[in-house]
Design a protein around this nucleic acid. Structure first.
Lengths: 156, 156
DNA sequence: TAAGATTGACCGCTCAATCTTA
DNA sequence: TAAGATTGAGCGGTCAATCTTA
């Protein structure tokens, strides 16, 4: 289907442009609402949400980076900021002295609970608002295919 | 369907996370390939591509900003950089002396032609690769609904 | 008074280099 | 020698302030 030295057809280009534009608007809106209402960027929220799913010991930095699709250095910088803000704390890794854990503080957990309301509301309203269960399944499968097609590269 | 004080269900959350992760991977890959092969960021490419669709006079800065979903100031900064690189030139607006036009130079047009190959290849391979025409229509309609739900806010 | 556009300070992200332990 | 993680310089984007013309 696809080859070097080739050009997108009209339907393909329009699909991509619709996806690009809508996605930028959605991410920007979500980021803005989280900043306004919880003083958190979308990237910060993604990190806290991941840590909220982990147990009380938190997660290894590398796992946190992988699960958010952030680079290692970005994860280090962002976690450092969240530590300064009091939402996250670091812990040594008992089994591998190169390793480092990040975990939510009580304050981080509270902040996450509040921010989740904003986050879920924006996603429900603007992304999922016009979709039924079938639409969601279609979108999810499409996106899983995209991810499968790309997985394996990332690092830092 | 959606209200404040509410939480995403499993299917909804998984749909969003699949979309978020795949989109980040795709945008990062596209940005990386454009930088490697054409020395252009994805944002630069979006601007050049829009100018490439305009006539030889180019576009007003505001129209360029709106069509790329960038803020006005970001558009100014980015166009300034592209002018320095020789891909874009500025022109005065004859009918409104507040206005400013940006247009491709010959070099910009050449650069766009090359970059378009990379751009289209990545999109065709990783986004559209596993879709048929119906899938594309579904995705496009979903994304148009998202955009409609968000349109009207942006400025700077 | 508002619209088009720009400016500069600040901040987060990327990249390459570095450090430490496996 | 490689893996986990961090560091700091450089750069692009945001935001608020500003300038000019409508």
């Amino acid at each position: 289907v696809t080859y070097p030295g080739f050009t997108l057809r009209t339907r393909e280009l329009e699909t991509w442009l619709a996806y690009l534009g809508a996605t930028k608007l959605l991410f920007d809106e979500l980021d803005r609402r989280l900043r306004d209402e919880s003083d958190l960027s979308l990237a910060d929220y993604a990190l806290l949400a991941r840590l909220g799913d982990a147990d009380e010991w938190g997660m290894r930095m590398t796992d946190l980076a992988d699960s958010t699709v952030f680079s290692r250095s970005r994860t280090t910088h962002a976690v450092d900021r969240l530590v300064k803000l009091g939402s996250v704390e670091r812990r040594a890794c008992p089994t591998d002295r190169r390793g480092s854990y990040a975990a939510l503080t009580d304050e981080g957990r509270r902040k996450l609970e509040t921010a989740r309301l904003t986050h879920d509301e924006v996603i429900a309203q603007h992304l999922l608002g016009s979709m039924n269960a079938d639409d969601m399944d279609v979108l999810r499968h499409q996106m899983e295919a995209v991810r499968a097609s790309l997985e394996g590269g990332r690092s830092d």
